[in-house]
Computed example of a mutant assay.
Amino acid sequence: MMSEFQPLIEHVKKRVDMTDDELAELLSYFSIKKIKKKQYIIQPDFVAKHRNYVIEGAFRAYVIDEKGEEHTIQFAIEDWWISDYNSFIYQQPATMFVVALDDSVVLQITHEQEQKLKAAAHQFETFFRIMAERSAAFQQRRIISNLTQSAEERYTDFLEKYPLVAQRVPQYALASYLGMTTEFLSKIRNNKVRRKS
């Protein structure tokens, strides 16, 4: 049992000092869930009940606009978190789809359990606060890059920062995350290859 929790233990220890007892208490609030490839863990109009920590696998969160086009909002691979955060935090209906790109294993915590944990001890609140701060900073960097960088710069930047994600997710999903068509992403990739050769 403990071995399945090991990645989360390491993840927490990197961010906050906790005793073994505190770690055990934190973990007791999480449950393990196996998710099949193409299975949805969040869908629009239903409240996102969980925050998900990825032990194994990959996920994509996306929205669909009125023209039926998909826009990828977030990816998550091992050691990342995913949810529809607006829905999870405010317990309102979700606006995003979150789907497994591979057979996956996640550790889930409900909104209610997270609130209990935060109220139980300062360390737990600190851990969730650090996660929220990192997430806010990441979203800001993403917005700025979308507004100030060319498509090619966004792609290059993503490859440098998240090489593992770029290898794991389908090209159409990466293109929609970077705000371009799959064809345009192929063109950028081919140009990069040509320049190297």
Rank of each mutant, 00 (worst) to 15 (best):
Q115D: 10
G68H: 12
D45N: 14
I130M: 09
Q6G: 01
Y172Q: 15
E133S: 05
T72K: 05
E25H: 15
T182C: 05
M2G: 04
S28M: 10
F138H: 12
I77S: 02
I109K: 01
P93K: 11
V54H: 03
Y53K: 05
Q43N: 12
A132W: 07
I55M: 06
S186G: 11
K196W: 01
A58W: 11
I89D: 05
D102C: 08
I77W: 03
L178D: 10
W80L: 00
K33Q: 15
F5H: 11
F138I: 02
V99G: 01
S28F: 11
I55P: 00
F184D: 03
Y62T: 06
L23D: 02
M180Q: 05
A61R: 04
V99K: 07
F127N: 03
P93Y: 09
E152I: 05
V169P: 05
R15Q: 15
M18T: 14
H11F: 15
N191Y: 02
A58N: 13
R141K: 03
A119W: 02
Y155F: 15
K192I: 08
E133D: 07
F124I: 06
H122R: 08
H111R: 10
T110P: 09
A121Q: 09
V106E: 09
F124C: 04
S197Y: 08
D20T: 06
L8W: 08
N146I: 00
A136E: 01
Y177T: 04
V105G: 07
D20K: 13
L26I: 06
A121G: 11
A136I: 12
E4Q: 13
L174K: 08
F30D: 03
Q74C: 06
F75A: 09
A61M: 01
I188N: 13
P93A: 05
F97P: 01
T182H: 14
L117E: 07
A136V: 13
V105K: 13
M180K: 04
F97K: 08
R134K: 12
R189T: 03
Q123T: 06
Y172E: 12
R141W: 01
H50K: 05
A100E: 02
L26Y: 15
Q108N: 13
S135H: 14
D20E: 15
M131F: 05
Q108F: 06
P170G: 10
P7H: 04
E114P: 04
H71F: 10
T181R: 07
I64H: 14
E125I: 02
S135L: 11
Q92W: 02
L23K: 12
F88W: 04
I188V: 09
A175N: 12
A132C: 08
K187V: 14
K161T: 14
I73E: 03
A100G: 12
F75P: 08
R129Q: 01
V47W: 04
N146W: 08
